[in-house]
Design a protein around this nucleic acid. Structure first.
Length: 729
DNA sequence: AGCACGCCGACT
DNA sequence: GTCGGCGTGCTC
């Protein structure tokens, strides 16, 4: 009987592949990486199990060529999480493992952290006389003295000495007075703990007290309005977790992981902090990951994929801004870091804290059923009053570049009163459309069912869906007229209009275009925070997390685009955006004012928000989802298909629909064209599945999906599954 | 996903 | 006569 190991490798394999043990040397352990032959390649894989036997005939098994790790890289709990995620999201298991590993480990590089060289004094160094060498070798004398005092020197300390200290130390080492020592350097931030925790108010206290590190699993939703001090509650719980000698994993949206957040954690906590995000160099990322795994990091702050980071002593998981769509991966392995974090906390029997000022309807539903404990934080720090919301009825109102006179008057008023105004428009560029005034021709992308956005600064037309760019035509290609006009609003246009209207108060624009340069986002936010700029304008980049205490007026320039979105989540997104942006105002002693320009002031969503705030909106929205049989009331999955050939996606999905198991409890919709039917030259269609429970949906998918790749039409399309989609588009 | 094989068009 | 286009199929 051949001894078999199962190895997860990258590729379209639902399950891991079977291999024989390496010809020589010890057998690899579960959780270790190996190099295995696949076709004519030799690739890195992860040992996932040690089955009794293989389903495959002996002569089809190939042998592991190299064992890359002598000890497991991943512990059993992390392996189980990855395996569970691959099954739940119906994604090839090898890719799930790859997602969990830093790039260097994916490539088979060694799982060792950077090393720092230091120097230590020897016994003879202790005894050596300093005076005797101070004339001939003053630098050596100086270093010897330093070593006699502090016993060790690090490379960082060495940089503080003048001249070639390294060469002098080398001489000391040669004389046997010092020796080099190496230590792993995980690149961690040392918590300074030089800021006492803020005194918690009653609400914060009760939510913090509910979090009980060390007392088993619990899921706690901290539903805290902006400025209510959610972070203080996290920090309090993290401190107590630290005191138990356990680690905390903090998962944040990509944009939420800012230097300010990190520095706040560092100032406040005593432990060592590892940062895990996509902007890190491969080496830094590996170091941070290894530090989490080794238990060297007490707190691990990371974006989505950090949910898979192995932890030696897990004690607490925090998910900040749990409503944020970026916590769900939008391509390939479409996992939800939030949902996996909750599962992970359950499996590890540790608390999970979810925080948001605008909780997802999913989490609110879980709070209603009692799966999550819910702690509202309604009180704002320093007794700042909540901002007052007002609608500006735009019907019949003359506008100049989208800004109504009442809005301009408000802005003027706040500026005159020494306040700051923040204007929000979730559309970058100058205008979303370029139109010929003579014949009505529209500048349309030839690869997408979309119009080009006119970017005046870059002097280009840019398709935001496929990234295609082209120069601005001088005349209409249809009728030859030179009267081409920008139609609609973008941030660039608002910027120009503001510059005109308030020539003494130049605005700062914050969107993806204006912050392309590294550090420019931070710089713009700093300018805004310091009051250097008093007119701030931008897209949803503004809505995320940054404190702008001097802002007294927030204006939503166009609420209408979100009111009638195709996606059933569009209202939820709009409400979250409005509330998040509104949260920037009225944080200090001055009460904030929020105005929303709309042509639909009677719209129930806006009325709900106005009179009952986000929680009233959410209650209504939840009831509507319930009535419509949509998530979170029911479980959803999408099958997407795309191809360059117009009819291929539909043909495939049609065939897939035919093969659907006869389960009456599963509602099947489609195939129907995706809302933007053609994108980047590909035609897109989809199927929607709805079930009363995640379980029955899973059973259905598990029976159905494996057969789909055998459908002949499948070869003409790229298709994928999205379980719990956040964009049902 | 990668990497073969395989069967048809424009080149030394 | 070959070089190479991308359709088709397989990898434990």
């Amino acid at each position: 009987m051949t001894e078999v190991i199962r190895v997860a490798v990258a590729g379209p394999f639902t399950d891991a592949l079977d291999y024989r043990l390496p010809v020589t040397g010890p057998a690899p352990v579960i959780g270790a990486r190996v190099r295995v032959p696949l076709g004519r390649r030799n690739i890195v894989g992860m040992v996932t199990s040690r089955p009794e036997a293989s389903d495959l005939a002996d002569d089809r098994l190939r042998a592991v060529t190299e064992v890359l790790d002598s000890a497991p890289l991943l512990d059993p709990a992390t392996i189980e999480l990855i395996e569970w995620a691959a099954r739940y999201y119906h994604h090839p298991v090898g890719e799930a493992y790859l997602t969990a590993l830093p790039a260097r480990l994916r490539r088979g590089q060694s799982a060792t952290p950077s090393v720092e060289t230091g120097w230590r004094i020897t016994e003879s160094g202790e005894a050596a006389q300093i005076d005797s060498r101070s004339r001939r070798a003053p630098r050596q004398a100086m270093l010897l003295e330093a070593l006699q005092q502090s016993k060790t020197l690090t490379a960082v300390q060495l940089a503080g000495f003048s001249g070639d200290a390294r060469a002098a130390l080398k001489r000391l080492v040669e004389q046997g007075l010092a020796e080099t020592v190496t230590a792993p350097d995980y690149g961690l931030l040392q918590g300074l703990s030089n800021e006492p925790g803020a005194v918690l108010n009653a609400e914060q206290q009760s939510s913090a007290a509910a979090i009980q590190p060390g007392a088993g699993h619990q899921a706690i939703l901290v539903d805290g309005v902006t400025g209510s001090g959610k972070t203080e509650v996290y920090l309090d719980a993290i401190e107590r977790t630290l005191a138990l000698g356990r680690q905390t994993l903090v998962v944040v949206p990509e944009i939420g992981l800012t230097p300010q957040l990190v520095s706040r954690f560092q100032q406040r906590l005593a432990g060592r902090i590892a940062i895990l995000h996509s902007g890190l160099a491969d080496g830094e990322r590996l170091n941070a990951w290894l530090a989490a795994r080794a238990g060297e990091a007490d707190v691990v702050i990371g974006t989505r994929s950090a949910v898979f980071a192995p932890l030696k002593h897990p004690g607490l998981i925090v998910i900040d801004e749990e409503h944020d769509p970026s916590l769900k991966q939008q391509e390939g392995f479409r996992y939800s870091a939030r949902d996996l974090a909750v599962l992970r906390g359950y499996r590890l029997d540790i608390p999970v804290v979810l925080g948001s000022a605008t909780p997802s309807l999913e989490s609110l539903a879980n709070a209603t059923t009692g799966r999550y404990q819910c702690y509202p934080l309604r009180q704002r720090a320093g007794d700042a009053r909540p901002p007052s919301l007002q609608l500006l009825d735009m019907r019949g109102e003359p506008t100049r570049d989208g800004l109504s006179q009442p809005l301009l008057d408000r802005v003027r008023g706040h500026l005159d009163a020494g306040g700051q105004a923040l204007l929000f428009l979730n559309r970058r560029g100058f205008a979303p459309t370029l139109i010929c005034h003579e014949c009505g021709w529209l500048a349309e992308c030839d690869r997408c069912d979309a119009r080009y956005t006119y970017h005046r600064g870059r002097r280009r037309l840019h398709c935001h869906h496929c990234d295609r760019e082209r120069p601005i035509p001088h005349h209409c290609p249809s009728c030859g007229s030179v009267d081409l006009r920008a139609l609609g609003l973008g941030t660039e246009r608002i910027e120009a209009a503001l510059t005109d209207a308030f020539p003494d108060t130049p605005p700062v624009r914050i969107d993806r275009d204006s912050t392309r340069r590294r550090g420019s986002f931070e710089q713009a936010m700093r300018q805004a925070r310091d009051g250097e700029t008093r007119l701030i304008l931008g897209t949803q980049m503004l809505a995320k997390g940054h404190h702008l205490p001097a802002v007294t007026l927030v204006a939503i320039i166009d609420a209408d685009q979100g009111l009638f979105g195709a996606d059933f989540r569009a209202p939820e997104r709009l409400a979250q955006q409005i509330v998040q942006v509104a949260g920037r105002a009225g944080r200090a002693d001055r009460p904030g004012e929020v105005v929303i320009q709309t042509h639909h002031p009677e719209h129930p969503l806006l009325q709900q928000l106005l009179h009952g705030g986000y929680s009233a909106f959410a209650r209504t929205a939840l009831a509507e989802r319930e009535a419509a049989g949509l998530p979170p009331a029911r479980a959803m999955a999408l099958i997407r298909a795309e191809a360059t050939a117009r009819d291929a996606p539909n043909a495939f999905l049609q065939a897939a629909m035919q093969q659907t198991p006869g389960d009456a409890a599963i509602e099947r919709l489609g195939p129907y064209p995706a809302p933007m039917e053609r994108r980047a030259g590909r035609h897109r269609a989809q199927l929607m599945l709805l079930a009363d429970s995640r379980n029955s949906l899973q059973t259905f998918l598990s029976r159905w999906l494996p057969g789909l790749s055998r459908i002949p039409e499948a070869r003409q399309v790229r298709w994928s599954v999205d379980v719990d989609p956040v964009e049902a588009l």
